[in-house]
């Protein structure tokens, strides 16, 4: 099963970041002789996929902009309010996703330090 809604939302952004972090982690493991050529191949493969995904997303945004221009969604005073709101919503969603992801990861990391996170095994000690 796939948890959540695949391909979108915070999950997508989270996995993008995991891929971006791969070469740094692998360099660290290589320095400690815990990596291998196969693992580096996997890093390269994922970086290529990530590059492809970011590339097509950028291309999509560019095309959308051009399409909105061609549709001439313009009002009396310049840019059409709907188009303006749509573009702003896109920017807001991107920034909000990054902020929410950071806050979410920080929250669950902090939760482990609270008494709430004590497991049965901890209590038995």
């Amino acid at each position: 099963m796939t948890v959540g809604i695949p391909g979108t939302g915070l999950g997508g952004l989270f996995y993008f970041l995991l891929v971006a972090w791969m070469p740094f982690r692998e360099a660290y493991l290589t320095a400690r002789r815990r990596s291998s050529l196969a693992r580096w191949r996997s890093v390269g493969f994922h970086l290529l996929i990530l590059g492809g995904m970011l590339g097509v997303l950028w291309g999509e945004a560019w095309l959308l902009e051009r399409a909105l221009e061609i549709l001439r969604l313009e009002g009396d005073g310049g840019i059409h309010p709907a188009r303006q709101m749509f573009l702003k919503a896109g920017q807001f969603a991107a920034l909000a996703s990054i902020a929410v992801l950071a806050a979410l990861l920080a929250t669950v990391a902090a939760l482990r330090l609270t008494p709430l996170a004590r497991t049965t095994r901890d209590r038995a000690r």
Binding site: I5, T8, G9, L10, G11, F14, L104, L105
Partner: peptide
Amino acid sequence: VGLWDAAIA
């Protein structure tokens, strides 16, 4: 992240 996407997304 999965739980967030399941609910919020």
